[in-house]
Design a protein around this nucleic acid. Structure first.
Lengths: 226, 226
DNA sequence: ATCCCGGCTGAGCCCGATCTGAACACCGCG
DNA sequence: CGCGGTGTTCAGATCGGGCTCAGCCGGGAT
């Protein structure tokens, strides 16, 4: 999952970037509204954390522009304590959730998980695909109850695929959502990781669709229990 | 589906051509307005991606000429960031959608899908013909709920036929929409693929109209559920 | 009844897409 | 500085699918 963090305070930015990274997100940071608008326009984020008090262009305007342009990416806004009106205008502009500063990092992470879940149209907190389970909160995955030992990238790959199971996902799309901005395009890393993941979750669960990408599906005999 | 990509920047062209190809389109590329106008006039594209900043003849003029000549092919224009006026004149000239550079490939693909869907006058995201279903987003087709295992060309063929079901489609038309410019005309590939497709979806669904082409129809007993 | 022509089909070639094992580069750590 | 664990690169092996070919079939015209 890839997140855009829009925050001008350097300390807080550093801290959040660290926390989000630890939580397994690929993070891009924009220190002002201009940069934020540009990045949001350019890169395919899964979710945005947007501070409303920003230099150059303020947060609400950025959000309004994105929505006017038809972007539906879920956005969580950060407001100062007591800045009630900010919160309202933020929602009017199309925010999906908010958090007032100061807040606990944990809470931010929890809300982000909820947003991602909602945006993927998934109800329950843990993702499942046949005998495969993934709990974003604990960053833990199991096959038929057996815990899986996944590396960070393997986990992120699986997470993304589970959020988009049933549909073909191109290598390009994977690269764009697993890594932040600068990444060498023509590399076969994704293929290698798909291979490694297959060894761990069972090859049959990840189907390759020649010329298009990969698709995660429950095994033939498995019933899909939501 | 066949798309004309009009873009002068060599790097971007290569990248987009790749991405569009990956997404299953047959792509022709025109590096300048003259070539664009010629190709658009000559070949039957399903959709056009048109950069407005072009050498020789500029994009807006090309678009204007096409529209004046009565072409209704959906056109998506690419504009430079902040080139507000370009976007406006593009719309005035008859563009169906726009995207400002730089943009994300996925978004381009999504918009193209939307355009194609709109242009075929089909509301739902999935095409259906009796017990046959095709979901372009997931790149997946089913017969009576059973998923079909289709190769890339089989899928494209079926996709095109479903978008024009009920009508006779000539081999020539198929060739023109499934392949890019240079394709050996007197080849029986289409027949071969029609054959393969019949084996997978049921021969009766694809009727041969001798001397004219093929027609995709629901089976006799099937009611067409939209 | 035969012939002709368009259409159908099975087999097989060939190339590029994909996979895979192993080596290499990094990094944090003791 | 050596080590374990990760991510990335590389090169060769493998595999699948698009295309061609040659021969068969069936309908309509003569």
């Amino acid at each position: 999952m890839r997140v855009l963090l829009v925050e001008d305070d350097a300390d807080l930015s550093r801290q959040l970037k660290q926390a989000l990274g630890d939580a397994g997100y690929a993070v891009d940071h924009a220190p002002d509204g201009e940069e934020a608008h540009f990045l949001g326009d350019t890169e395919p984020y899964d979710v945005v954390v947007l501070d409303l008090g920003l230099p150059k262009i303020d947060g609400v305007s950025v959000l309004e522009r994105w929505r006017r342009d038809g972007k539906t990416t879920p956005v969580l806004i950060l407001t100062a304590r007591g800045a009630w009106s900010d919160k309202v205008s933020g929602f009017d502009a199309g925010a999906d959730d908010y958090l007032t500063k100061p807040f606990h990092t944990e809470e931010l992470l929890a809300r982000l998980r909820a947003l991602l879940r909602r945006s993927a149209g998934i109800a329950s907190a843990t993702l499942s695909c046949g005998g495969l389970r993934l709990d974003p909160k604990a960053a833990r995955a199991t096959v038929n109850g057996e815990p899986l030992r996944l590396t960070s990238l393997e986990y992120r790959l699986l997470h993304y695929m589970m959020m988009h199971q049933g549909r073909v996902i191109s290598r390009t799309e994977l690269v764009e959502h697993l890594y932040d901005q600068d990444f060498d395009r023509d590399s076969n890393t994704i293929e290698v990781f798909i291979g490694r993941l297959r060894k761990k979750v069972g090859s049959e669960r990840i189907e390759t669709v020649r010329g298009l990408g990969y698709r995660l599906t429950p095994l033939a005999g498995e019933t899909e229990a939501a």
